[in-house]
Amino acid sequence: MDYFLELFLGGLTRGSIYALIALGYTMVYGIIGLINFAHGEIYMIGAFTALIVISVLTLMGMNTLAILVIAGVIAVIYSSAYGYTVEKIAYKPLRNAPRLSALISAIGMSLFLQNYVLLAQTSDFLPFPCLIPDFEFMEPYAHIIGSTEIVILITTAVVMVLLTIMIKFTKIGKAMRATSQDKTMAMLVGINVNRVISVTFIVGSATAAIGGVLIASHVGMINFYVGFIAGIKAFVAAVLGGIGSIPGAVLGSFILGWTESFATGYVSSDYEDVFAFLFLVLILIFRPAGILGRSEKYKI
């Protein structure tokens, strides 16, 4: 039973991290209908920035909690800046181009960012210090769930609630929903669509950065390639839940997290990535719109 519980909670943690990345995908897709292939790289850059800041501050001898907060904030700022710039360079000029062009451009951007980090930093795995302290009240449950996992779960929940509030109740959230429904119409009623898209990219990148810092301290190491696979799996999660839908992305992430956790726990860990992809193919065959997505009718 303990083993089952451990796998269950492991899947939950995994799922929350996928959720943080999947939110960015789903928001961007909902608004401009494009898979932001470079999203996984944004997440990786967030984690790298955090690692660099942590290393520098540790050498300066700050205390752990301050370092954690500062590193998190800087990682969020930088990831957002990267997300904003990537959109301006690679996607904005292609707003009216065929979908295939925008997609290829996105793949190019992903390739570029990976190799940029590879060349400027290193190709080795770097150890990522675990800065989240072990809570005392967690002591009796330590064999099932660690403090890092608890922090991950809580952070994910908070981010999710904040995002939902932003989209449901704020002015920019309303503008986002309008833009995703009909771009031309939104422009006609005076919404600055370019600004809305920029904000979407910034918000999506910021959540990805939070995910990046959390998963890096959970796994304990990073390299330039971590973003790619995590990005693809988060995408699978977003599709699973119904792309464009925020609760869908979260639900899809949890399902994917549990699937992977149980599959690796009871079947074999060699085929971990295969499960995610098989799942994606099955979902797309039987329910292309995802669990919570609306099926879209394609008209001329």
Binding site: I35, V239, D270, V274, F277, L280
Partner: peptide, 25 residues
């Protein structure tokens, strides 16, 4: 067969997944 119904971006991801599955196997 499985990707007949998919449009552009989904297709890209599924084929990518297919390539990775073959390599992992």
């Amino acid at each position: 067969f499985p990707v007949l119904r998919l449009r552009g971006d989904y297709l890209a991801i599924v084929t990518l997944g297919f390539g990775e599955i073959i390599r992992i196997i």
